[in-house]
Amino acid sequence: TTVHIGNVTYHFDNPEEAVKWAKEMAEKLGLRIEIHGDTIRVE
């Protein structure tokens, strides 16, 4: 599972961890997340 924040990509072996981490980052940055299969974007 990959999480994209701007130009930076993070890789997670556990999809649930990826979603949890992306949600925390989105809250901190005042952004929202979009999930497309195994790709998560924070925008």
Rank of each mutant, 00 (worst) to 15 (best):
T1L: 07
T1D: 02
T2M: 09
T2W: 13
V3Q: 00
V3W: 01
H4K: 11
H4R: 09
H4L: 14
H4D: 04
H4S: 08
H4P: 01
H4T: 10
H4I: 15
I5S: 02
I5E: 01
I5T: 02
G6Y: 10
G6V: 06
G6H: 11
G6M: 11
G6T: 04
G6K: 07
N7P: 07
N7Q: 11
N7I: 08
N7L: 10
N7W: 11
N7R: 12
N7H: 12
N7F: 10
V8T: 12
V8D: 10
V8G: 07
V8K: 15
T9A: 12
T9M: 12
Y10S: 02
Y10L: 07
Y10K: 07
H11A: 06
H11E: 06
H11T: 10
H11C: 09
F12R: 00
F12D: 00
F12L: 01
F12C: 03
F12P: 00
F12G: 00
F12Y: 03
F12K: 00
F12A: 01
F12Q: 00
D13F: 08
D13T: 13
D13L: 11
D13Q: 11
N14F: 06
N14R: 07
N14V: 07
N14W: 05
N14K: 08
N14L: 07
P15H: 15
P15V: 13
P15Y: 15
P15S: 13
E16F: 11
E16G: 07
E16L: 11
E16I: 12
E16C: 08
E16D: 12
E16A: 12
E17M: 09
E17D: 12
E17A: 11
E17H: 08
A18S: 02
A18T: 01
A18Q: 00
A18V: 02
A18N: 00
A18G: 06
A18K: 00
A18D: 00
A18I: 02
V19Q: 07
V19T: 07
V19N: 05
V19H: 09
V19R: 09
V19P: 00
K20T: 09
K20P: 02
K20D: 06
K20I: 09
W21I: 02
W21K: 02
W21E: 00
W21N: 00
W21D: 00
A22T: 02
A22M: 02
A22H: 00
A22K: 00
A22Q: 00
A22F: 02
K23P: 00
K23N: 09
K23T: 14
K23G: 06
E24W: 15
E24D: 10
E24H: 12
E24A: 13
M25L: 11
M25K: 04
A26M: 03
A26Y: 03
A26E: 03
A26I: 02
A26R: 02
A26N: 02
E27W: 06
E27V: 07
K28F: 11
K28N: 08
K28R: 13
L29M: 10
L29S: 06
G30C: 09
G30Q: 08
G30F: 05
L31N: 05
L31K: 05
L31S: 13
L31F: 14
L31D: 05
R32I: 15
I33G: 02
I33S: 02
I33D: 02
E34I: 14
E34G: 04
E34S: 14
E34K: 12
E34W: 10
I35A: 04
I35N: 04
I35T: 05
I35V: 10
I35M: 08
H36V: 13
H36R: 12
H36M: 13
G37W: 03
G37P: 04
G37T: 04
G37K: 05
G37S: 04
G37R: 04
G37C: 05
D38G: 08
D38Q: 12
D38R: 06
D38P: 05
T39Q: 11
T39D: 07
T39R: 05
T39P: 02
T39Y: 08
T39S: 10
I40S: 01
I40T: 02
R41H: 14
R41K: 10
R41N: 07
R41P: 01
R41L: 13
R41E: 05
R41Q: 05
R41A: 04
V42F: 07
V42Q: 02
V42I: 14
V42N: 01
V42S: 02
V42Y: 02
V42T: 04
V42L: 15
E43D: 11
E43Y: 15
E43T: 15
E43V: 15
E43M: 15
E43W: 13
E43A: 12
